[in-house]
Design a protein around this nucleic acid. Structure first.
Ligand SMILES: [Mn+2]
Ligand SMILES: [Mn+2]
Ligand SMILES: [Zn+2]
Ligand SMILES: [Zn+2]
Lengths: 143, 143
DNA sequence: ATTAATATTTGTAATGAATACAAATTTAGA
DNA sequence: TCTAAATTTGTATTCATTACAAATATTAAT
């Protein structure tokens, strides 16, 4: 799937900036923040403005080519994967890990629907200590 | 369960301010923000400071007598119910509804544990249109 | 009861991510 | 080419949250 066509199919005019931001999001599945995207792209597009990053990401979310991840209190993160999937934030290294979902029924979903609410978005967030960080802590102790 | 004992059991010294904030959280299960709590309590405790609200809520979360709900991008919400349960935010009226969870296994949890991560917190968020708001919209059309 | 040490609260200043806004630039159409 | 619309940019602003230090309250020691 090429970025140009993908944006067009979602009614987003593929400008240089939009292509670059979508390209970055698609090739870096690390759930970057607006700031991280700006720092990554600004060397190659020196005129790039942070406002454009914010505007574009908002547009991407509206048009359904990205989702906003609010697992981190401090910063909004973004994900080119728009499918419903779980996220795990390591409180030590701040990395965000993906976890895919097997069952179709999400917890509490049926109850909410039975009460007559209409669900448009679903998010599953976990926080804790990732394997990598846990191993680092163990190595410290065994030295 | 009385508030005084409850705070003590969780190693929180029950000051007037802390009692009031815990009392409010416990009796208003509407997932209030720091600002809402301040506006509600400041008439009865005129010297109350907003900083105290923030400090106290942070302490409550640390000591496990409240949880922080980050379903709303704009404001942090708080909940005296510390059990893992789902939340539904209506994007029209901004009310946050509870939904209780039947199954013990949360989506993606097993996968994350198998990868060696240690999960400490779990959050399930939904967004959409609540029944009340949907009915209001229907009434508008049929007039 | 005084005093001193500690804990808590308060008010104000600072932070910083996100937004508002208007000017500048680019793109598309006549 | 000329014009209008769309997009981008830079700067100013917002506002929830935090930092900090002074003020007050609580507890412990003398
Ligand atoms: Mn993801
Ligand atoms: Mn709740
Ligand atoms: Zn980690
Ligand atoms: Zn509603």
């Amino acid at each position: 799937m090429n970025t140009f066509e993908y944006l067009l199919e979602h009614n987003i005019k593929p400008s240089v900036q939009r292509m670059a931001i979508m390209g970055y999001l698609d090739s870096h599945r690390t759930h970057p923040t607006a700031d991280e995207i700006f720092n990554a792209l600004s060397p190659t597009i020196p005129t790039l403005s942070k406002t454009t990053i914010y505007n574009t990401l908002k547009l991407f979310v509206q048009q359904g080519v990205a989702q906003s991840i609010s697992i981190d209190e401090k910063n909004e993160h973004f994900d080119a994967n728009t499918a419903v999937h779980a996220h795990f934030l390591c409180r030590k290294c701040n990395k965000i890990y993906d976890a895919f979902i097997k069952s179709k029924k999400l917890p509490g979903e049926t109850e909410l629907k039975e009460e007559g609410h209409k669900i448009d978005e679903a998010y599953i967030y976990y926080r804790g200590l990732c394997r990598e960080c846990m191993e680092k802590e163990l190595n410290k102790q065994n030295n």
